[in-house]
Design a protein around this nucleic acid. Structure first.
Lengths: 338, 338
DNA sequence: TCGGTCAAGTGTTACGTATAACGCCTCCCG
DNA sequence: CGGGAGGCGTTATACGTAACACTTGACCGA
């Protein structure tokens, strides 16, 4: 905790102030009304300040039986999306006297089997995003209060869930493209087994399939610019009528699609329309700016933390899905005449 | 810690295995060689498994006097750079049985005055990046072992520092552009008071200024695509001879510069060359791909954590600056004839 | 036979905090 | 003038763990 020379304890403060350790705890804990006089209280605070006293969290946690610390499990930090989720969660946490410890789940960090292996902190609860089922049961086995982000409400082993309304976002994208007149559509899907991506595919099939005369081709790519580039290039080079629009599972894939389109000597949106999903900074950095679905990552994190607080306090409060909004920019236009 | 029904303690395990609590601690702590027989040890492990025992970290921390948890203070998570730093630090930490708690320093998270206010975890040390001096003294006041990232080695109040060799990166950029023949250069600088940005400006002035017949104009912009766009657009629209190259303090600013150049009807690199610094995913997403300086964020985080471990163990080990590498892509070319 | 060594444990304590339970003094009211 | 009621504290205890000091019995060499 401290180094060499030990840190002052509440007992040291007590001695300096000429009171008992209990009085120090009372005063510094803010529960001294009617128990300790104001003058004594001030003397204690003064002594604490002079000694540079900071309470030993480990001791407090042990005594209290909780830590006011929660774990946030995210798949990766390679886009700013989960950084936003963290920020939102941490903000609400801080407002309620909680801290948030981050655990990026995939390979790269030690024995990734179980988040708790490398999260040293003692925890009061867990917010987990996009977990595989086995990792999920591992967490559940720990009996900690759990909130799942963007997960199947029915398949989450009874954990509380907080979801973005991805279904509605995908619906907006589909309607937008259909209204523009697109009929041959390529779905550039994330090659990740996760509920949130399954939802995209399902809704897309439903919406596009409902319109007579449409075709929907789905290809999968790892979530990276390079991966999307090669996948999209192959799909677009195939013989047969070329799709007039590409719907991407997220903005990063869309950036890859941009490069594929450009490499084939085509132009966006004149020859092909492209859409994304996330609305990262990337979406406005590329040219033309990307038509995409804005997800409010921070709000997502806030709602996740609020849900966990509700669980911790025994409340059963539950809001609906978080609304998302299509943002139309320059990457979509009516298809050129055939 | 746990919820309602209390979690099993080492004493429960002891009772189930028919041994003393001390024996459980010995066995599970891995220090039972020659103290407990193998058969008994196995019985203890079995009991622990059946009860689902996990040690109470708060109690352990209290007993041991340390937490094997460190705090990583970063300015923001809006780019993947500091995500990389975190990942690297967390990897080395995990390998040494440590955990890392993240604290994004600026506004947005509760009472941001002091990192410890919202980082609930009890800490063994701190790795801090780009701190203002006042926050730094606040941390130092806590007497915790401290490592500074990308900070003035002389101004860090005696804390250990780990730095990227930004000076060399900027030198490479300058040499590259000068060799291509550029003489009128615009420096799009980050509007942030931080040592790492001061270094950029200083080195640039030295390198460009050393060549006769060159001009260097510096303008400042907040680190965002929008901010860079307006700043660059203003600078490029000014009367007088237009710069033939823009050196940006980081990739995000470069993305803004791209938009400004394009908005003025100019082309990259034909009319104007642009360089960045960071080599984010963004650098290859934009068109043309950005000539920039690759910073190895994960290595940076690893070295930071290694330095902190050294401090914690009393070693005084210290490597040199971390090398960086210019990556030449399509955004730079010789200036067109005047 | 006997002191000594070693394996295989057990009993006890301390870490620093928060709080329940208790004590004392003074003041006020019947 | 007696006693109940605050006001102002203190004493004692427990949280779960790790580690130190100690005990017990078995074995062994001289």
């Amino acid at each position: 905790m401290a180094q060499g020379s030990t840190r002052p304890t509440s007992r040291d403060v007590a001695q300096a102030a000429g009171v008992s350790q209990a009085a120090v705890s009372l005063v510094l804990g803010g529960k001294w009304r009617g128990r300790v006089s104001e003058t004594t209280a001030e003397r204690v605070r003064q002594a604490a300040r002079e000694l540079g006293y900071r309470p030993n969290l480990a001791a407090r946690n042990l005594r209290l039986g909780h830590t006011r610390t929660v774990l946030l499990v995210v798949p990766a930090l390679t886009t700013e999306f989960f950084a936003g989720v963290y920020t939102g969660a941490a903000r609400i946490a801080a407002q309620n006297g909680f801290g948030v410890v981050l655990y990026p789940s995939p390979e790269g960090i030690g024995p990734a089997r179980n988040p708790f292996a490398s999260a040293q902190a003692a925890l009061d609860g867990v917010i987990a995003s996009s977990m595989a089922a086995d990792a999920l049961t591992a967490i559940r086995g720990d009996q900690l209060p759990l909130v799942m982000l963007d997960s199947d409400p029915n398949g989450s082993l009874g954990a509380a869930t907080v979801n973005l309304d991805i279904t509605d976002g995908v619906r907006q994208v589909a309607e937008h493209l259909l209204t523009l007149g697109h009929r041959r559509i390529l779905h550039l899907a994330a090659d990740v087994a996760s509920w949130t991506f399954e939802v995209r595919a399902r809704e897309l099939a439903a919406r596009i399939g409902a319109v007579p005369g449409t075709s929907l081709l789905t290809i999968r790519a790892p979530i990276s610019i390079e991966g999307a580039l090669t996948a999209a290039e192959t799909a677009l080079s195939a013989k047969g009528p070329r799709p007039t629009a590409i719907i991407c599972d997220d903005d990063k894939l869309a950036a890859g699609a941009y490069k594929a389109v450009r490499r084939l000597g085509l132009r966006i949106p004149d020859d092909i329309s492209v859409t994304g999903l996330d609305d990262l900074a990337l979406a406005t950095a590329i040219d033309p700016e990307l038509t995409t679905v804005r997800l409010d990552a921070e709000l997502f994190g806030e709602r996740g933390m609020q849900a966990l607080l509700a669980v911790l306090e025994g409340r059963e409060l539950e809001g609906g899905d978080i609304p998302v909004q299509l943002v139309v920019r320059g990457s979509t236009a009516p298809p050129s005449a055939p």
